[in-house]
């Protein structure tokens, strides 16, 4: 393994292990394995929260990388294309309807999140097919329109809620680590591993897809079929993630873009970097979110947007200057 990687991995693991010790409430090391307040906070709140942050950040970054390759565009991410807001609308609707049904062991909320994400991607693909273009303009404009549409839907549903529900929905929409237990983590973790392994095994396809439709066809990749499989899989992942952490934006833009700048000559390294740094970035941001202005907590989605929006503009300007 590459030395740079090993360093990144060590920093990452150290961070993930250290962060739960730091916070508003001091963790008493001596009572970590006793039945105390601080051991409860450590084991039942901070550890799961850190793990959720890592899994979510890593998956969002990876989803961003996958979308950028499939759309051949460094600004295409689940958030900018309106996939996350589609998932959000589905989930908000589910909460309003008080859905507690399950389907094949999955909560109805995940299914609605997945459905919302699929609707967004279907609309974008439809538009791209009608205008026969996957240009920045087509994709981002469709994303903007979808974001408007789903935002108004969410506001409408919220308007119909009672006041206390509205506050908690609003908080979720700002993005953040909901308190989760090990049961949910046990559900998320295999999906996460499956997502990473799937991406790893399809790395050659993802690389070839980023070279364009005719190139892919000529090299033996049925890109139309591949695209659909990827979209369904990624939408599923996004639907579930959004139901846990809300529509957190820009992780899927910042991390893969940096990976591309650092490893433009090796897709495999890019993948590894994206998976590790995505997790680190969100864990760290979440740490800042809960420690910056104690005792209050800043929604983590607000911090990522504050970092991400200028970054987005920067990438947009570079892209437009290059391609007109």
């Amino acid at each position: 393994m590459n030395k740079k990687y090993l360093l990144l991995l060590i920093i990452g693991l150290a961070m993930v292990m250290l962060l739960p010790f730091i916070g508003i409430i001091k963790i008493n090391l001596a009572s970590l394995f006793e039945n105390s307040n601080s051991s409860f906070i450590f084991w039942q709140i901070r550890i799961p929260r850190t793990l959720l942050g890592f899994i979510a950040g890593s998956s969002l970054a990876l989803a961003g990388l996958i979308f950028q390759n499939i759309f051949k565009n460094s600004l295409a991410t689940p958030y900018t294309l309106g996939i996350s807001s589609g998932a959000s609308a589905g989930i908000v609707l589910g909460i309003k309807l008080n859905l507690s049904m399950t389907f094949l062991g999955l909560s109805g909320l995940y299914i609605l999140g997945f459905a919302g994400a699929l609707i967004s991607i279907g609309v974008i693909l439809g538009i791209a097919r009608i205008v026969k273009s996957y240009s920045i303009y087509t994709l981002l404009m469709s994303g903007v329109a979808l974001n408007f549409l789903f935002s108004s839907l969410i506001v409408l549903i919220q308007y119909l809620f009672d006041f206390t529900q509205t506050i908690s929905i609003l908080r979720w929409l700002m993005g953040g680590m909901t308190p989760i237990g090990y049961r949910e983590l046990l559900f998320l973790f295999p999906l996460y591993i499956f997502f990473i392994l799937g991406t790893y095994f399809l790395k050659n396809e993802l690389l070839i897809a980023s070279a364009g439709e005719e190139f892919a066809y000529s090299k033996g990749l049925d890109i139309r079929k591949f695209r659909i499989i990827i979209f369904v899989a990624v939408s599923f992942m996004i639907g579930i993630l959004v139901s846990f952490v809300g529509p957190i934006g820009f992780i899927g833009l910042i991390v893969p873009h940096t990976a591309r700048l650092l490893f433009k000559r090796d897709f495999k390294s890019m993948l590894g970097f994206t998976i590790i740094s995505g997790g680190l970035l969100l864990t760290l941001t979440d740490f800042l979110a809960r420690t910056l202005i104690p005792p209050a907590e800043i929604p983590v989605g607000i911090i990522t947007s504050l970092m991400g929006a200028p970054f987005f503009l920067f990438v947009l300007i570079t892209n437009l200057r290059k391609n007109g």
Partner: peptide, 20 residues
């Protein structure tokens, strides 16, 4: 016309020839 837009190394393009 080729449709490259994201950075791709020549090596990766060549290796894609072995994809089949």
């Amino acid at each position: 016309f080729d449709e490259f837009s994201l950075p791709l190394s020549v090596k990766e393009i060549l290796l894609a020839g072995r994809y089949p």
